[in-house]
Amino acid sequence: MTQLLPFTLGAERYALKLTSIQEVVDGAQLHYLPVTPATFLGAINVHGQVVPVVDLPLLLGFDPAPVCQRFLVLSPQILSLALAVHQLESVINVDLQHLALMQSDEPQNCIAGVVHWHEKMINLLDLEQVGHIIETQLK
């Protein structure tokens, strides 16, 4: 079984594997991060580390994330970033054997696969693709 942390982006439900998240930071103050595109909301101080925050909905073409102070800090091995999302839900346990792999006809959606869980569809976020989009934006 794999633990997933679901969250909403617009009307859709996405999720990340719990192992790719370092922690969820609550009440973090956003600080000004100059020179970056609008998808960068700023930076937060996570135990003395400077971590840039990306507006995930805006990056993926949804409405921008609400002004909030809860962020998903990703594992630094994957991406040294924190993500702002619309709404966090509680952790679920799923069997990823039943993961339907997406033929990535629209790679900009950043979906690695779809999980069916209690008759709901949850998109598994493709962090590699997210990193790729950010990289392109910075060029």
Binding site: Q29, H31, P34, V35, T36, A43, N45, G48, V50, V51, P52, P76, L79, S80, L81, G131, I134, E135, L138
Partner: peptide, 20 residues
């Protein structure tokens, strides 16, 4: 962190005494 490390014009971040 990458990919911000190559962003022209941005030198790096520092944390001040008040945590900002």
């Amino acid at each position: 962190p990458a990919p911000l490390d190559h962003l022209k014009g941005l030198g790096g971040g520092t944390i001040l005494g008040d945590g900002s």
